[in-house]
Simulated scan of single mutants.
Amino acid sequence: MGIPMSVDVRDLTDERSAAEAVDAAFAVLRSADERFSPYREDSELRRYERGETAPSADLQEILQVARDASAASSGAFSIQAPDGSLDTNGVVKGWAAERAAGVLREHGSRRFCLNAGGDVVTAGEPEPGRAWRAGVRDPFEPTRMMAVVELRDGAVATSGTYERGAHVWDGRTGETGAALLSATVVADDLTTADVLATCVLVLGVEGVAWAFAHGAREAFGVLPDGRVVTRAGVAGVPVPLG
């Protein structure tokens, strides 16, 4: 997927069992990249788009997540790129990472943290009485964290334009760009957190409050002038979470 990924498993103390669990989790991520990448002409996504294959159950699920997000956001979220092609990246990363987390659970892990390019899904605690801690990068300063989110059995995702530029588009207009510089959402699972973060980025200030009505535990956005948008409104300075 072109992003760094890591897994921290705390409760599979047998080295072989831990290695098997992590290998199986990464196999899910590699498979998702191969099958649903918009950059591979032989991917299932591209073959489906050309009418060469029927959608698999997994692709149907991804498309349904996208349809639900589009309906909930009044069309702001869309997997149809401005050039008319399908681009499911707004769903697939979170969906695949959540699937990988499920594989870790299937292998018996109940205490882990999976980091997919800064989007994080966790289970349990790294040690009794302490939550997993996920840093949210300051969009203006890559060496500084603007917030730290504490997680137990949850996920956090950030969508932004500060690294890749205007790569997110508004499904209502087809225009790229966003009202916010970044948007961060905490939710029960990474599929939800990832999709909601993209929606908030496009919806702008009103998107933060909107996210709470659609599955967010916490959400905030950063305006281009550095002010932070929280559930309570626009703050003058960044406000750390949790």
Rank of each mutant, 00 (worst) to 15 (best):
S70L: 10
G102W: 03
A134T: 14
L223P: 05
A71C: 05
L86N: 04
A32D: 08
V234D: 09
A66P: 02
G108W: 02
A19P: 13
L114C: 06
H107T: 01
A100L: 02
P38A: 10
E20C: 13
A25E: 00
A134R: 07
A178L: 06
H214T: 09
P224M: 05
A21L: 07
V239Y: 09
W169R: 14
V168H: 13
A219I: 13
R152G: 12
A197E: 04
T230S: 07
D58T: 13
E206G: 10
S74N: 15
Q80S: 11
E175H: 13
Y48V: 07
T161M: 09
R172N: 03
R227A: 07
V22I: 15
A97D: 00
V120H: 06
A183V: 06
D14R: 13
A71F: 09
G226I: 13
M1A: 06
G165C: 06
T122F: 05
G215T: 08
E125L: 11
H107W: 01
T191I: 03
C199E: 03
T230P: 01
V239Q: 12
L223H: 09
T158Y: 03
E15Y: 07
G94K: 00
N89K: 03
A96D: 04
T158E: 11
A216N: 03
A147I: 14
G124L: 07
Y39K: 13
F26N: 03
A27Q: 11
L190E: 05
S37Y: 06
V186H: 12
K93W: 00
